[in-house]
Design a protein around this nucleic acid. Sequence first.
DNA 1: TTCCTTGCAAATCGTTTGCATAATG
DNA 2: CATTATGCAAACGATTTGCAAGGAA
Lengths: 130, 130
Amino acid sequence: MALKYSRQREVIKDFLCTRKDHPTADIVYMNVRQEYPNISLGTVYRNLTLLSEIGEIRRLRVGDGVDHFDADTSPHHHFICSHCGRIIDLKMENIDYIQETAEKDFNGRIDSYSAYFFGLCENCCNLLQS
Amino acid sequence: MALKYSRQREVIKDFLCTRKDHPTADIVYMNVRQEYPNISLGTVYRNLTLLSEIGEIRRLRVGDGVDHFDADTSPHHHFICSHCGRIIDLKMENIDYIQETAEKDFNGRIDSYSAYFFGLCENCCNLLQS
DNA sequence: TTCCTTGCAAATCGTTTGCATAATG
DNA sequence: CATTATGCAAACGATTTGCAAGGAA
């Protein structure tokens, strides 16, 4: 299964790189279609899956029932606004020791973890208190 | 929307309390049906949703595309085996300070967080190395 | 009698897949 | 030429919903 070049894949990746709001497949589709009008939704899904399998992007399952995608593959955590659903990158100190904490009393092997934070984003905070 | 008693809801809740493996709606349905043969899947979904909304159970979205349910609503974290998919309760020291860590550089309000750990469970560890 | 809950089936939503065709190496 | 990728549409799996009938307060 050697990878072959595809214009569609390039456009998808490029688009994702311009965004830091973790778009869904559908959002990617709608945007990419403006530059590449007859791309199909299936192709978008296939490429997003492929790109995340080879580690070029990350697939985020934040619990809202829809997959989100992130071109930033560096280790970082996310905040999800319970009001508007926005997903925001968190810049925070390393918390990898929670993995060691979890390993202490566990019979098995822990390889990774994911941490999601929930609450109100700055926008919604202001909006709701006014 | 005052809550009225329903036998179905009781049976669902009772069943969930007997399990610590975080079953899906479908598993709940199949089991409950043995005691209550003509319950419908829709009713199971409706009650699981209702029960989690009033805080009597917890809905877990671990990222496998299916919702799992947990009768244990006390704060605790979960481990998901990447090989067999099993979801296991973790008994571990409190790590709530990761929320404070996250709050430090964040403009907004963080109310909660969820942490999931991934790897191989004890069973699969042994299985795969033999 | 009010209105919450049910069973049933159809609908919805996000995602995946089969297939014939097009593009890459 | 061999093989991967595409567009399209149909299929899929999990979950939700509309509706008429049943049951609790």
